[in-house]
Amino acid sequence: MDADRVHGLSETILRVEDLHKTYDGNHVLRGVSLSMLRGETKVIIGPSGTGKSTLLRCINQLSIPDRGRVWLGNKEITSKKENINCIRAEIGFVFQDFNLFTHLNALANVRLGPMKVKGMKKAEATKLAVMELERVGLADKASAYPSELSGGQQQRVSIARALAMFPQLMLFDEPTSALDPELIGEVLEVMVSLAKDGMTMLVVTHEMGFARSVSDEIIFMESGNILEQGPPGEFFTSPKEARTRAFLSKITELYGE
């Protein structure tokens, strides 16, 4: 477990302490702890059903953990005192199924958050929305409805929607798993450029190429626990645990290097 490292001016954006969660009798999270500094990108990998998504959802409280605490900056998210809606406004969440609002076009999707949660005026919010759509390369699709966009485009809009809130932390829950192979690239491109711009990102994914190139640390989870973690260089070349090695070899079989 990472202790709080004082790294010059780096601050700890996220701290997770001993999270437990049980779903339908399954003990899905068994005491997970981690922390992230500003600007770090961490990738969580592991077999399906090991609680990776649940972990992300417990962080922004879309799922309430049974035990354990979470801090965003110096605010404790899990304490009853904090207004969860304010906290969520600081955390961006990207879903596997995009979940764009079906009754709104791309532009309206992106500006809903700033307008209704942050109280921005419509004109301002619209400008902001256009900016974010440009950032993900979809300025020309501003008036398109979700059903008129490809999966990759929808996911990029959903990233723009999250970015429009100027979050401190972005959580990605298998952002490319529901996409056709040829559309994955455009989404990963956006994510890579985000990481390079200094966004603090926690990503659950199977995309090893992305993990290798942009992440500061890889976290391997299995059966609700963090089994191993380390910088990509070490992690991929000399994993310590046997199960990590087994998983990695299966992945390279399926996805290639």
């Binding site: 922004n60 809606n85 406004a89 609002f101 949660v117």
Partner: peptide, 23 residues
Amino acid sequence: IQSGQMMAARALGLSRLEAIRHV
């Protein structure tokens, strides 16, 4: 309406009432 709609709305920071109203 798919449950994902409500989840996405809450993830943005909308309260339950606001989510019902706007989404």
